[in-house]
Design a protein around this nucleic acid. Structure first.
Length: 255
DNA sequence: ATGGCCAGCATCGCTGGA
């Protein structure tokens, strides 16, 4: 069982790459972020031809999330954080093969102290509160997505330069720890990993070539799923593509 | 030398991302 997450930064642009990647990797469940497509434009048929059924919640231009499933159609689909009114399509959840799959695109936050930063912290707080009840209902739960938070210093190419900046500020990192406090495990850190492994590199400044990146895309697993997790890695190859997303996929394998 | 890119929308410059 392979679970994956990938911020594709426009599904329209990245669809050919994504279809190639699905054929090469054969993931069972894929969470996508930043599809940037209205639901009527979602390429449902292309995915069905590739053997995947999809659940999606999109909007024009910004945001947009989707879950692809190779095993069975996503069931009990819900979009958004219940009780948290939000025009931005950032969350979708579905049940697949007895697992509750939650696909999230956390707000970026723009800069510390901005309105968008306040929205980010409020959004993550609402997510955390909802997940507590969701975990009580679904012991086998995975939260996959673009968290826009680098949790620890090893997740940042230059921690000194990033200290206090958005994506690595203490309130954001504390909010990430609140998710771990629910009993979730960072699948990537369950295993030995190569030094300086990141999931996002700025398009500018030759950041990818210089490996000036951040690890901000994560797979958190409930204890029941963490026990079954046998591997987790970042697929850096996808970032080498021509016209790549600025994010690389993260893949977890479960027994 | 601290900026360089990319996608979308609607032009021929802006917003937003991270």
């Amino acid at each position: 069982m392979k679970l994956a997450t990938w911020n594709v930064n426009s599904l329209k642009v990245r669809l050919p790459q994504l279809l190639d990647w699905l054929a090469a990797q054969h993931p069972d469940v894929v969470c996508l972020q930043e599809t940037k497509l209205e639901d009527k434009a979602f390429p449902r048929l292309e995915f069905e031809s590739a053997g995947y059924r999809a659940a999606f919640a999109g909007q024009k231009t910004y945001n947009g999330v989707a879950i692809l499933s190779r095993l069975q159609p996503p069931a009990d689909v819900s979009a958004g954080i219940p009780g948290f009114a939000d025009a931005q399509q950032r969350l979708i959840a579905a049940t697949i093969d007895g697992m509750r799959i939650v696909c999230a695109y956390f707000p970026n936050g723009q800069s510390v102290g901005s309105d968008k930063y306040a929205y980010k912290l409020k959004w993550v707080g609402a997510l955390t509160a909802w997940l507590e009840s969701e975990l009580a209902r679904h012991p086998r739960l995975a939260l996959l997505g673009d968290y826009n938070i680098a949790p620890e210093e090893p997740d940042v190419h230059d921690p000194q330069a990033w200290e206090g900046q958005v994506l690595f500020s203490e309130p954001e990192r504390t909010a990430f720890r609140r998710l771990l406090d629910l009993g979730l495990k960072d699948a990537f850190r369950l295993f030995d990993q190569p030094e300086k492994t990141y999931t996002w590199w700025d398009y500018r400044m030759m950041a990818f070539r210089r490996n000036r990146g951040l690890r901000i895309d994560h797979i958190l697993l409930s204890q029941d799923l963490a026990r079954d997790c046998t591997a987790c890695r970042v697929d850096k190859e996808a970032r080498r593509a021509e016209r790549p997303s600025d994010h690389a996929p993260v893949i977890a394998e479960l027994k």
